[in-house]
Every structure is written in C-alpha cells, then in structure tokens.
Design a protein around this nucleic acid. Sequence first.
DNA 1: TTAGGGTTAG
Length: 551
Amino acid sequence: MPYEGYYSCKCSSGGTIFDSHRVFNNANERDDVIWTSMVACYAQQGDKEAVFQLFNQMQVEGVKPNSVTCLMICLVCSSPDCLKDGKKIHTFILGSGMQFNLALTNTIIDMYVKCRRLNYACCVFDVMVNRDVVSWNVMITAHVEAGLNEQAVMLLEKMQKGGVPPNQLTYVAVLKGCVQLMNIELGMQVHACIMENSLQVDDFLHSNLAAMYAKCGSLKDAESVLDDMDKADVVSRTALIAGYSKNGEGKEALALFEKMKREGVEPDELAFICTLRASAVIGALQHGKRIHEDIRKSSLCCNVLVKNALMDMYANCGSLNDASDVFASMEAPDILSWNEIISGYAHQGAGKQALLYFDKMLAEGIKPDATTFLAVLNACRHVGLVEQGHCHFESMSREHGILPTMDHYASMVDLLCRAGHTDRAEAFILEMVVEPDESVWMALLGGCRYRGHVETAKRAYRQIIKLNPTLPGAYVTLANIFAMGGMWNDLAEVRKEMDAFGFCKQAEQTYIELEDEIAMFSKSDRSHPQAKDIQTELNRPTDLMKEAGSS
DNA sequence: TTAGGGTTAG
C-alpha cells in the first residue's frame, strides 16, 4: 500500500487538518501523491492561499505537481476574483503537457465558467480531442446559466451526434433551459427523449421535470411526474406547490402541503416558504397561521427566509399586526424583511408607519435598494406626501446610487396625479432622462381619472398606443374617463377600437376563507352554495356608504 | 480528481 497516506490524510474522511499534517510530517518520503493529499485537504476548505503555498513549496522541494494537484488548484480558482490565478495554473498545465488529461481539462473549463469567462471555456472546449459526458454537461449548463438556451440545445444535439449519450445531469440542465425559454413543447420532447433512452430517473431529474411542467404552467403534467415517483420527495412536491401558487391556484398548493404532511414527508425551509406564498396569494390567513404553528414547532423557527415569508403571508392577508410581530422577533432582519414591513404598511395605506420603518432602517445603517424606494414612494402616494416623495425619489440616485426604474417613475407620476398635479406629472415625464415606457404613460392616463383631465388623458393614450397598441388597460381607462365626463361620442370611438382588437374583459377571481374551506368566486359566478350570503356580505359596505351618504 | 435539484416583496 504505497499510497496509504493519500486517503488517510483527507479531511473529508473525518480527519482534521491537524491529522493530515501529522501523516504528512511523518511520511518518510513525500511524493507528489502525498503533497496532493495536503493540497486537496486545503482545497476542500477553500483555503486558496494555503493551496498555492503548498503548490510552490512542493516544487521548491523538487516534487512535480501531477494532474490531480492541478485539478485541486483549478477548483480553488473557480470564482470571478480568482481569474488571474486560474489563468496562471492553466498556463502551468499547458507547459507541463497535462492538457490531454480529460478530468483536468473538464475542471479548467468549469473553472473559467465559474470565473464568468464563458468565452475562455469555449476556447478550451473547442480544441479538445476527446470529450466525455462531463465536458458536454459543463458547457450545456454554462450556456443555460448564461441564458444562451438555444445554444445549449444545439450543444445537446451535437453531443448526441458525436456519440456521447446524455445522462441525468445533461437533462437537468436542458430542462432548465426549456423553462427559461418557457417552451413546454421542447420540455416535452426532452421528457420523451429521457423515456426513449430508458434512462434511470432519480429524484433530481424528477424534481426538475416537475418544476419544468409547473413553471411552464402545465400542472397536470407536473402532477403526473409526481405520480410516477415511488415516493415523491420534498423537493419535487415543493416544485409543484410553487407551480400552483404561481398559477394562482393557492388552494391546490395548500392541499398538496397538507397531503405531504399526512404522508410523513417533513417540510423543509423552501417547502414552508412556497406554501406560505400560496397562502399569501389567496389571502388564506387561517391556513397561514396553521403553517406558522408548524414552523414554531420545527427547527426553522428562527430562519430569516422563513420569517420573511411569514411576514409576506401576514401582510398579504391584511394582518399587519402579525407581520410586525414577526418582524419584531427577528434578530437580524435582512433587506427583504425591511422591504416587506415597509411595503406591507404602505400597501395598507398606513404610509406614515411605513415611513417610520424606513427612517429606522436608515438609522440602523441598512442600505436600501430599488424595492425599498418603490415601497417608500408607495407610502408617500397613500398619504399624499408630494414633496417628501419627490425628495426620496431624488435621493435614490444622488445619495444611494440607485437608478430609478420605470416603476419608480410611474409611482412618482401617480403620486403627483393623486395630489391633483396632473400638469406637473406630465412635465415630469417629459423631463425624464430615459425614454418613458408605456407603464409610465399608463400611470399618467390612470392618474387623469382622479380629476377628470380629459386632454392630458388623450395625450397619454396616444403615447401608449404608439408604444404598444395591444394594451387593453389603455382603452378601458380612457373609456372610463370619457364615461365619467359624459363624453359618449368619444366613448363610442374607443369602444370601436377595442372591438377591432377583439378585447374582452376577463372576470377577475378572488378567494375567501370560510372557516376551513377556501372558496373561489368571480363577479358573475353564483356556483358556491353560499353565493347569496357572500354577495350580501360584499354589498354591505357599499350599502352602508350609500346610507351614510343619503342621510 | 471533474458537472446537477425546489424558492423570496409590488
């Protein structure tokens, strides 16, 4: 056993660096393998400095690094800030004639990918004489991660033509590409390909298949992927739960979560987060509270991400007190937590409370981001704080180095319009340093409703049509403004334009939690057994307002 | 000795 030390001094086998050093120091003869063991040990810890020190030292002592030593060096150089060292080791490898070692070359390619130099990776890949499944997988995954999905699919075709059969990892990467392309047909072809090749499908691939179908909106197919599994794991189930809530089917998401628990599959961090999101989507407060109970009993009770999801659920369900309790219980709220509490209060119209949290955030030295400012502008909008809103908008780029997005501009326009400054809002758009998009003009058009500014509305409408003639909201809003002003001829004209485009208004759906039952209803839907009672309850506030107005 | 999974505000 000449190389016994090779494995015995590896940290991953349970030993410590101290043990490794003892083996290393006691070795009678230190060959390249034992040196490499030490390098591997520090490489696993990600200690780049120690790795390079050993690499240099072994050469000083006259031991030539082998391909595994170099591979380890490449691994610690696999991040953007290590590119320079990565290039150095690559040069060393070329000079030592090790470039024909397949595993090493694959690692060099992956190193360049992780250094965000896909072009370098492509250069190395292109000149390879022999490529194995890992070489292709690294390239396909890299292209998908860079959003170059069509190229990734082309690589898959080339790989197959070149006689290298894809494995599970290849399909995992390609399925991700299908999702980015939102191309379910391609996803189905990939699925068929997996079946044709009778490839063993493991949990990784199953969860990716489920995620692909769920994200592309085909929940039935995602369900059947889960049915094909002996026992669907928490990851696959989470993919489907997330798919349900993304597609507005929060009720199904919650049902799946309950089923998962009944079947003894323990929810993890992401399962809780996705299920809380589902509760948030449909405003199921009681379900959300039950999930909160589960979280309290689990080891994830202090997890920041889970707490953020809890706040999101409570805020969306309109229970700001619960959201702020969760926030108060956090030891170190992150930017998401702050944004959540600020936007939660802003959204509910409690603008002053939202701004108090914003001040507190700044006082605690937390750096706001673009979303924080969206919430802050929203808060100002609700309270009618025009000048304060303008100040915050200005401070975004000036003091915090954040460039306003179209959403920020649109928010400012709405803020001005709400306060009756429609002319100022229009001037604000015309003075924008970037070209306004339709959302900014839509904010102005919508803002004209507050005071019935028909001429400004017409100008905004013309701009929107120029940018995007297929935006139903523009026609509907203008029509409403005409109707408010009794301009029936103009209204008829807009209706004609709408008919020409074939727009029809889709009934909006909403959910209501009745004790344990979640019911969905839309404006004209009377199918629920208690539809009459629900409608009476919904009419109550309007009736009360009418009564109050007439007295 | 090399490559991979589900998720996050408005």
